[in-house]
Amino acid sequence: MSFTQQKYFYGDIPEDHTGKDNTSTTFETKNEWPLWEVFVRSKQGLDHKHVGSLHAADAAMAMENARDVYTRRQEGVSLWVVESKYIHASSPDDADSFYEPANDKIYRYPVFYQLPDEVNHM
């Protein structure tokens, strides 16, 4: 598959207009800190929710960075951080076998059961 993108968009300046050479260099990172995923509980009673990631040298710093970066506007009352490499994610390739089988189990839902009006609030 090939195409050329010619149009320039705000936030996307094409490479042929940059006026610099674009010879790719192999990049080796020197002192990059590991990546951490951040989860915030926005208020008591709610689950922690994934909000993004950040870099930090260790867990203590990751926690503080999460506080400084992701809760500047009182977004949270509790934080979780976990180094990204420890997250195991399901593969989209498995989606059919993982999630499709739940599709036809309508008896798991309350609306499946017809009850007389007198008790229908059950």
């Binding site: 195409f3 050329t4 993108q5 010619q6 149009k7 320039y8 705000y10």
Partner: peptide, 16 residues
């Protein structure tokens, strides 16, 4: 200028 060149400058189909 922040919005980039005029649309008429683009001749190709717009993948984005």
């Amino acid at each position: 200028m922040m919005f980039g060149p005029k649309d008429s400058e683009s001749t190709n189909s717009d993948q984005s």
